[in-house]
Structure formats: structure tokens, C-alpha cells
């Protein structure tokens, strides 16, 4: 990497003689600053997990499992007696984890297909004028604050789903289980997809552009058509980047709290796949949105610990995703992946 090269070079330069004091001090100060930030980050991970630990120990692995009404459990924890020995901890987070998983999974899967197709469009098929506006458009969509997406979802898409896609009959068919009013995981997935796709597009476009011209031109010279060249050579050679994009988008989707708390209905309910398509019209509430909803009760110690346990789950999963993404990106940078793919047809 550049850093080590530069370091080696400057060591040569220093030669004999005393090391410059100003230089030494600058290095020390910048190093100390970086270390300080690192310590702060490590402390964050430790503190969040430590704070949430009592909730985990009281519930064991059942914390992650199903059982009972999760909203009722949260209310009981909030109302638990003020003496520490009587704190209520019973909490089964499955509906929340399930909702997080559902929204993230569908958004990333749909997003990745759309992102690869859009990237192909931008790199190869878009006419000159459109190509020039596509990149600012992608960057704009990535930059729109999540609360605006949430607002549009809540005031435009949710009423539309409620008025046009859900009939009174379908609502009545499940009313003894759950109330349907348009706020649903389906709307959440739809908006989440729009939110995370631009990041993936940007990464895939970059990757498609760095595919060696020789490979694509070679294929074209063999008489392969433009789409096939991109699909069989460009997309395959960019697979590591596509994986990295998916990882990054997953991390983003996992932590999305505000938008999902607005459009998914804020009910601790597990959508039932047996309901067919109605599945996507059922409400839920992911982990992040639950933390937002419960943040007003942080002054109650057992609830605070439960909320931090949820935060710990999010933090650990996103940290793993960051590590995974970084490892993939490093392997791209080192160029170990690209030559390995050279043998691929």
C-alpha cells in the first residue's frame, strides 16, 4: 500500500543524523489522535454489549427466539418494579429480528438485481445524454435523507396500498390476528430497496469500468454481442465488487431505523408466510425502529438494558459485515481476485 512505500522511502531519506524533532512530534500526535479514536470505537462496542448483557443473561438463547407478545413484554419491562431484584427481563426478540431480516433480505436481493442491470445500462447502453445525468441521479438518490423517504412512503404509498390494493374483505379476513392499514413490510421493502440500490449501482459501475478493456474487446472481436460481453465478462469479473456492494447495502439496510419505523406499522408482529401475498401487507417492526420507539423509556434500567441488547445485536452484525466487506475490498485491491477470474470463460 502507499503508506508503507512512503514510510520506507522516507526512512531512506532520513539517513544518518538525528531525527527531526518536529517531524517526530507530528507523527506522535497524529498517531495518538488515531489511537484515541480507535479506543473510543472499541469502548463503544464493549460498553454497548456490557450494558445489554443483563438482558441476554436473563433470557439466554431464548432472547433470540419467539414466544409471547413482544410489545407486551416491552411494556412489562418498562413497568417493572423499581427495586433491582424485581426487574422484569423476559424478552423474546424473534418478531423484531425476523422483521429486520425480512426487510433487509428482500431489499438487498431485489436491489442487487436492479443495481447490476442499471450498472450495465449506465456503462454500456445509455445514450450519451442519459449517461451524463444518470450519475448525478444515482448520487442524489443515495443522498436523500431517510426521513424524506419515510414521509413520502407514509403519506403517498401507504394510503395508496390501503385504498387500492387492500379490499375490505382481505382486511376482515385477518382482522382477528392483525389490523391492516397499508403500513406494511412490503412498503418498507420497496422504499428500502430504493434507498440502498444507488450505493450498489455506484460500486458496480466502478467495477465494470475497471474490467480490462482487452477482455471485453477480445470477446467483442470474437463476435459476441454487447450484452453478452457485459454479462459474461464484465459482470463475472466484477463479482467481488458485487458482493462488496451487497455487504455494504446489507449493513445500511440492517441499521435503517427512522424510515422503517414510519412505514412498517410499528407493531411487534411476525408476518405469516401462509397468508400468501398478503404476507407483504402485514405490519412488523425491525430492531432499529424498535430502539427508536423505546428510546423515551431509557431512564428505566431494565428497559435500557433491553434496548442496549438490541443495539448490541445490530452493532455486532454490522461490525461483521464491515469486516467482511473490507476483506473483499482488500482482495480486490490486491488484484488477487481478478487474475483468478481470468480463467473464467
Amino acid at each position: 500500500m502507499g503508506a508503507t512505500e512512503v514510510a520506507a522511502k522516507t526512512e531512506d531519506r532520513a539517513g544518518p543524523g538525528p531525527v527531526n524533532r518536529v517531524d517526530k512530534r507530528a507523527e506522535l500526535m497524529l498517531g495518538a489522535l488515531s489511537t484515541l479514536v480507535l479506543v473510543l470505537i472499541a469502548a463503544m462496542i464493549v460498553f454497548v454489549i456490557a450494558k445489554g448483557w443483563p438482558s441476554f443473561t436473563h433470557n439466554g438463547l431464548a432472547w433470540f427466539g419467539p414466544g409471547g407478545n413482544v410489545d407486551q413484554q416491552l411494556a412489562d419491562i418498562f413497568n417493572s418494579p423499581a427495586t433491582p431484584s424485581n426487574y422484569v427481563y423476559t424478552f423474546h426478540a424473534w418478531p423484531l429480528i425476523y422483521a429486520t431480516f425480512l426487510t433487509t433480505f428482500f431489499a438487498v436481493v431485489i436491489g442487487i438485481v436492479v443495481a447490476v442491470l442499471t450498472a450495465i445500462f449506465i456503462v454500456e447502453f445509455a445514450p450519451g445524454g442519459m449517461r451524463r445525468i444518470m450519475e448525478p441521479v444515482v448520487r442524489l438518490l443515495a443522498a436523500v435523507p431517510s426521513v424524506i423517504y419515510g414521509l413520502i412512503g407514509l403519506l403517498v404509498i401507504v394510503p395508496f396500498v390501503n385504498d387500492h390494493l387492500l379490499s375490505e374483505g382481505t382486511k376482515r379476513s385477518v382482522e382477528y390476528v392483525v389490523q391492516l392499514d397499508g403500513t406494511s413490510i412490503g412498503v418498507g421493502i420497496l422504499i428500502l430497496t430504493v434507498m440502498i440500490t444507488p450505493i450498489m449501482i455506484a460500486i458496480v459501475v466502478d467495477a465494470l469500468r475497471t474490467v480490462p478493456v482487452g477482455w471485453t474487446e477480445g470477446a467483442a472481436a470474437l463476435g459476441v454481442n454487447r450484452f453478452r460481453v457485459l454479462w459474461t465478462i464484465g459482470v463475472r469479473a466484477s463479482r467481488p465488487a458485487i458482493v462488496a456492494a451487497a455487504v455494504l447495502a446489507t449493513a445500511r439496510a440492517l441499521g435503517e431505523a427512522i424510515m422503517l419505523s414510519m412505514v412498517t406499522g410499528s407493531v411487534g408482529f411476525s408476518p405469516n408466510p401462509l397468508d400468501g401475498l398478503l404476507y407483504f401487507a402485514e405490519p412488523a417492526r425491525p430492531l432499529g425502529a424498535t430502539i427508536v420507539a423505546q428510546s423515551t423509556g431509557l431512564s428505566v434500567p431494565p428497559l435500557e438494558q433491553t434496548v442496549f441488547a438490541m443495539a448490541a445485536v445490530l452493532l455486532v452484525s454490522s461490525a461483521f459485515l464491515s469486516f467482511g466487506g473490507a476483506a473483499i475490498r482488500r482482495s480486490i485491491r490486491r488484484g488477487q481476485v481478478a487474475p483468478a477470474l481470468a480463467g473464467v470463460d
Partner: peptide, 23 residues
């Protein structure tokens, strides 16, 4: 240390802001 700082920054970049907030 440099690699650790690098990963640390990456972790912060991936941490949901709601988690940063309650931290």
C-alpha cells in the same frame, strides 16, 4: 495499529446511527 485504526473507521462507517445515538 494502522490496520486496527482502518478497521475501526470501517466499523464506525457501518454502525447504524441509531446505535451511535444510544451509545
Amino acid at each position: 495499529l494502522a490496520r486496527a485504526v482502518e478497521s475501526g473507521v470501517e466499523i464506525v462507517a457501518g454502525t447504524p446511527t441509531i446505535v451511535l445515538a444510544i451509545f
